[in-house]
């Protein structure tokens, strides 16, 4: 069963990528709509089958299929909105630091309390894109992150990761 699930998720990923990249490429089943032609669909299915049968051992190596749930993907899309707001703040912050040169850097350790690899990766990427923080290293045993902070203040765990942890825990834990 796990073998089939792994095969199926790789197949879905390959098929989705192919169909997205060939959307509105010219020929269509229904005249006048930007869908795919018959040849495209047949080719998409056969290529996805070949890719899935050859590389299905690479994806989902830990036999954890919670991301097959579409609700999690929906929450992930909603999560992009607060992330974007933080990115806007981050850029004005960097602009301020570039102009004034007001920095007091240091590398701090935070313990976000997340367990899974995917959620820690997402948290590290979000931290890198938000104001004044940059992920430097990760301790995979203790689940701790080392963050380069451009203006060191008190209480790093709450200040840096508090607002993301509760979002990421909803869809990636």
């Amino acid at each position: 069963m796990d073998d089939f699930k792994r095969f199926f998720s790789t197949f879905l990923l390959a098929l989705g990528t192919y169909l997205i990249l060939t959307f509105a490429a010219g020929v269509s089943i229904v005249e006048g709509t930007p869908l795919w032609g018959y040849e495209q669909l047949v080719l998409a299915f056969s290529v996805a089958l070949i890719v899935a049968s050859v590389t299905s051992h690479i994806l989902c190596r830990k036999d954890d299929f919670r991301m097959l749930n579409p609700v999690r993907w929906g929450i992930m899309l909603v999560y992009l909105i607060p992330l974007f707001i933080e990115m806007v703040k981050a850029n004005f912050d960097v602009a301020y630091r570039v102009i004034t040169g007001n920095i007091r850097p240091g590398i701090v350790r935070i313990k976000p309390g997340l367990e899974k690899d995917l959620s820690i990766t997402l948290l590290a990427n979000s931290i890198t894109l938000t104001p004044g923080t940059l992920t430097v290293d990760v301790d995979e045993d203790k689940k701790e992150l080392y963050i380069h902070w451009i203006k060191v203040r008190k209480n790093p765990t709450e200040t840096i990761s508090g607002r993301f942890t509760k979002w990421i825990r909803r869809f990636a834990e």
Binding site: M87, V88, R97, I103, P105, G132, L134, I150
Partner: peptide, 17 residues
């Protein structure tokens, strides 16, 4: 910026945005 980490701050955030 003076060192490689602060340069990464500027380079990553601003060019991604």
């Amino acid at each position: 910026f003076p060192d490689v980490y602060t340069r990464l701050h500027a380079a990553t955030k601003c060019t991604t945005f």
